[in-house]
Every structure is written in structure tokens, then in C-alpha cells.
């Protein structure tokens, strides 16, 4: 038994579960508001109205963005591992996913905060 292994995969697995539970809540709210709201169609005005109307909607999406990105990218990372990539490729893919996740989170938050 080698002991060099870390517990990072344990935390990845755990956070995947937590974000999964949060997503269930976020998605119910998100889909409900977009598709079953008062208005039948979705347009830019509707989004602007909602985000400018309430500080809490801003907070909702600022949390929603990193949660969904972590869950999605970590899920794809799990699938990638099923194909047994070499350790070099694993590192590259992991770095790519982290970069993509961080950039997309900042971009998303920036987009949300411009409305607030």
C-alpha cells in the first residue's frame, strides 16, 4: 500500500454530492421562474427586470453559477477518468477544466453584477 495518495478525490466526491443537492433546488426555482412565470416568453427585458428588481436574485445567480460549473465539470472529469487517460493527459484535462471553471465563473458573475 503506498500512502502518497491525497484526500482531494474524497473532497471532490463530497462537493459533487453537495452541489447536486443545491442544484436540485436552484434548478426548480430557475425553471419555474423562466418557464412557468407570469409571462409566456423570455426576453432580455424580463431578465433585466428580475435582476434589477431584487438584490436576492443577484445573490441567487452568483451562487448558482459556480455550483453548476463545479458539478458539470467535475462530472465530466469523472467520465474522462473512465477512459483511463495517461497521467500527463489527466493533468492537462484537469488544468483545462479548472481554468474553464474559474474563467466562466468570473465571467458569469461579472455579467450578473452589471444588472445589479
Amino acid at each position: 500500500m503506498n500512502q502518497k495518495t491525497s484526500f482531494s478525490s474524497a473532497y471532490g466526491w463530497f462537493i459533487q454530492r453537495i452541489t447536486g443537492i443545491l442544484l436540485a433546488f436552484f434548478l426548480i426555482v430557475h425553471i419555474n421562474i423562466l418557464h412557468f412565470g407570469e409571462k409566456f416568453f423570455i426576453d432580455f427585458n424580463m431578465v433585466t427586470e428580475r435582476l434589477q428588481g431584487s438584490f436576492w436574485w443577484g445573490i441567487f445567480y452568483i451562487i448558482f453559477i459556480p455550483v453548476v460549473l463545479f458539478h458539470a465539470l467535475n462530472g465530466v472529469w469523472g467520465l474522462v477518468q473512465d477512459y483511463r487517460p495517461s497521467s500527463g493527459l489527466q493533468k492537462t484535462v484537469k488544468a483545462f477544466f479548472w481554468t474553464l471553471g474559474i474563467v466562466a465563473t468570473f465571467y458569469g458573475i461579472l455579467a450578473i453584477t452589471t444588472f445589479l
Binding site: 500512502q3 495518495t5 478525490s9 474524497a10
Partner: peptide
Amino acid sequence: KERIAFVTQNSGVFR
């Protein structure tokens, strides 16, 4: 402790 560290490796429980 040693065993848990070992089974959390890449080809362990989280696969």
C-alpha cells in the same frame, strides 16, 4: 489510516 489513504487513490473507491 493507511488503508483509507490507499483506497482513496485514483483507482480506489471514488472510481
